[in-house]
Amino acid sequence: MAGAGAGGGKTYSFKVVLLGEGCVGKTSLVLRYCENKFNDKHITTLQASFLTKKLNIGGKRVNIAIWDTAGQERFHALGPIYYRDSNGAILVYDITDEDSFQKVKNWVKELRKMLGNDISLCIVGNKLDLEKDRHVSVEEAEVYAESVGAKHFHTSAKLNKGIEELFLDLCKRMIETAQAEERAKGNGNGQSANTRRGVQIVDDEPQHQSRGCCF
């Protein structure tokens, strides 16, 4: 799922995967972001599992497709089929739930192993409206995010706080990555197809390793 669109008008299409434990408010977050922007083309407005949004950032058209994932532990194994080919990931935890933050850390490890540095990560502490019940310290979360090359945001889907900023920042970073990729491609010599195939073959290696590291 390349970020770069067809030439000319330059439209970027990004896939963003939404990860996090159940009940942290992933769905509310994305619904809030796409609120009243339900795409008629979607099968039904009753669903918030797959949403799209169109943006214009500095004259660049950006289409993002947001893939929600099931956060229950039993569906954890399905992660790879959702986050493959993602340009960005939004990892959501509940600031009142320390455990959900640990889950985010697990996801970050897995994503970095599987997708390297090409995926832009956002770590999101949701439910800011429940500040008084906070169990995850702001400092801890921000230090961690920085250590893994992710951006940290605080949001409240309920109060519609921080969500626009989150997506805007993520899109900007995904555009940067895509542009860097294009430049790299420009320098490359015509063997891209082969090397890419090579990349894919290696992909299984981290998967094996992850047994030890991630779980």
Partner: peptide, 17 residues
């Protein structure tokens, strides 16, 4: 994934570098 990559000239996988 492999098929998709083969057929996508602008694949954005981990860089070969």
């Amino acid at each position: 994934r492999r098929r998709r990559t083969l057929h996508q000239t602008q694949s954005k996988r981990r860089s070969a570098q």
